[in-house]
Design a protein around this nucleic acid. Sequence first.
DNA 1: AATGAATGAGCATTCATTCAT
DNA 2: TATGAATGAATGCTCATTCAT
Lengths: 205, 205, 205, 205
Amino acid sequence: MWGIPHNTPMVRISASERSATRQRLIDAGKVEFAARGLAGARFDEIALAAGHAKGTIYNYFDSKEALFFTIVKDWCTQLVAGFVTANGASAREQLLEIARLDVEIARKDLDLARVVINQLPGLVGDHRVGVETAIGPGIDLLTAVIVAGQERGEVLAGQSARTLARLFLNVLSAIEQEALASDSELGLDDVLPLVDGCFLRGLVQ
Amino acid sequence: MWGIPHNTPMVRISASERSATRQRLIDAGKVEFAARGLAGARFDEIALAAGHAKGTIYNYFDSKEALFFTIVKDWCTQLVAGFVTANGASAREQLLEIARLDVEIARKDLDLARVVINQLPGLVGDHRVGVETAIGPGIDLLTAVIVAGQERGEVLAGQSARTLARLFLNVLSAIEQEALASDSELGLDDVLPLVDGCFLRGLVQ
Amino acid sequence: MWGIPHNTPMVRISASERSATRQRLIDAGKVEFAARGLAGARFDEIALAAGHAKGTIYNYFDSKEALFFTIVKDWCTQLVAGFVTANGASAREQLLEIARLDVEIARKDLDLARVVINQLPGLVGDHRVGVETAIGPGIDLLTAVIVAGQERGEVLAGQSARTLARLFLNVLSAIEQEALASDSELGLDDVLPLVDGCFLRGLVQ
Amino acid sequence: MWGIPHNTPMVRISASERSATRQRLIDAGKVEFAARGLAGARFDEIALAAGHAKGTIYNYFDSKEALFFTIVKDWCTQLVAGFVTANGASAREQLLEIARLDVEIARKDLDLARVVINQLPGLVGDHRVGVETAIGPGIDLLTAVIVAGQERGEVLAGQSARTLARLFLNVLSAIEQEALASDSELGLDDVLPLVDGCFLRGLVQ
DNA sequence: AATGAATGAGCATTCATTCAT
DNA sequence: TATGAATGAATGCTCATTCAT
């Protein structure tokens, strides 16, 4: 009985292996969800693309919905974690920074962007709860920025900050959607100018 | 066992009857598609709500997709048919008029609006073709307005008119989507000011 | 528009056809459930044996459990419906008559008997509710017979009639189970004497 | 990457440790099998309840069935080992003693009793072999007692001793089953009088 | 034209079993 | 020995579509 600490975690794969498998599943999920939507996505395909058996997904995610919302939450986490505001930045500058981050994320991971931008609006019924939960932190961040902007008089005060936050996200997504369309002449580079020139010009100041 | 069960109609139905049945199916389809999306909608429910048998739908529409896109096309037809431009109207006025029409249609038929606004962006793959076809006339109308506006120098000229048309529709939908959300403080009345103040201010002139 | 009563039921198959299909499914279900138990039975097999597609079962029964309990209830209904008591029959005679009926039903339909006798005791958890509901009328009948017997002093009074009813059914099933076993020397003809000689001799009078 | 994850025991475990682990698995198995039946039991749950990993079960038992029948055999072993017959005891006294032992075992281990009493009858097909093997010694014991009773003229001679033995076990189980039912007014204390008064009175002498 | 029973492909999910560590 | 991640066969159930009446 000497020598063997029996209370060490008896893992069979290392944390990095587990994490890698999980990431492969997530990556494959992004592709499939982007291509077929939540309802149309098939676990068979995701598992196959990830190089695993179908059952393996259930070692990492409870259900198809769980994998989907993990992906959406991942997007939201990146957005919130990446946001750093400079001292004395205006509401407009901060909103633009969020938009810039979002575009940056989309540029790195087009499938992720397609999932978030195209699929979320169409989710109805029970799935709405999952959507709201998953993107909640992003909405919270935007709301905080807008509240501060309203207090400084930079953002129009007639509407609640939360409503304006959701509106901002909706419109940002709408512009990105066009930019991501395969037959569009717009590219991701055009998103920020459009957000600033078209949308923020009316919302702030 | 004498007697034949005459359980099938033996006469042609009148054109008005046929039309009425078709409309009942469309109306029931709007409700179901709005509530569950294209993938989640069930023909059983649509038929039941319309007061018909499931098989009857196939006497009027080739498939679930066909019914869906008929509904979308119906929206588009209303939009295009309702548009009347005054002599000498500016691009901004004309775009606002289209937005006003769209809001008016949404107000009359919330389910139709939910189908168009929420479901269309999520359609991917083969369905994209159906989407483009169904909303084509609307895009064409907007494109024509924008082209004329660009020729008169009212609309920014850096982008193709078609791209701007799709962008306009996207953003209009995004704003309406927030306005239609059940927990939103925004209403349909707020859409036009937002389109004008936020978006058109940057797009035109 | 003359001549066609549009409010006649628009059935596509006659009631007898529907009933026949339903019965084929029930018969195939009996075989499969008897051979593999509720958990092990496969809908594929039942449908195949009945000469139908898998989905057809769902036009007649909500779920595997529903088909199973329909079968059990069918047994119970036969038992209750077949019971006719002679004037002035003693409790012992009535209980024997019920046992005789049960043996008769088993003789006509061995698979049905195997389902009821072998499978019911092993159902646990949520399934217990289904069991109690399905065999309720049989228990009620036995209880009524025993209550009357207790009032006439023919049945021992120390226990509740309902408990004795369930005990009677348990023991009857236990004896039949042995009689149905493939390698048993006992046959169904031996059940009644055993019930009377061994069990009722202690229970009544 | 220096350091080897010593997450596996490197020493043999002692016989007592092995035995304790085995017993924990058996105990957990009793609970799970009693609650869900053989088909419905999950190895995950058994392992979790026993404080081990799922794979560990396979170091002790070949399969789910093997664990199940080990449990059943354990019951049978207890029954046979506990039986001590007094000199000159009658068949009735010896059968009652076996019943008493069975009730005693059930009282000590209700889950074990539920497994044996409720689950065994429902096992069909290939599983029957396992059942017969597992309870064989118990049947042998009963058969020996009955054979001797028949030779002394105490037990009715029309049926084979083995058949009567199985019948006795069936009926004993049926009575215990009612006594174990959660909503029954009968308790385990009522089993012996019922076996004696109702059943043995007819079977012996 | 209308019906609705029948169909069967399709799919998410479960879980006993294996095996590399 | 112990582990638990990986596996993949198995299966209940759904539902768009067909078609005989």
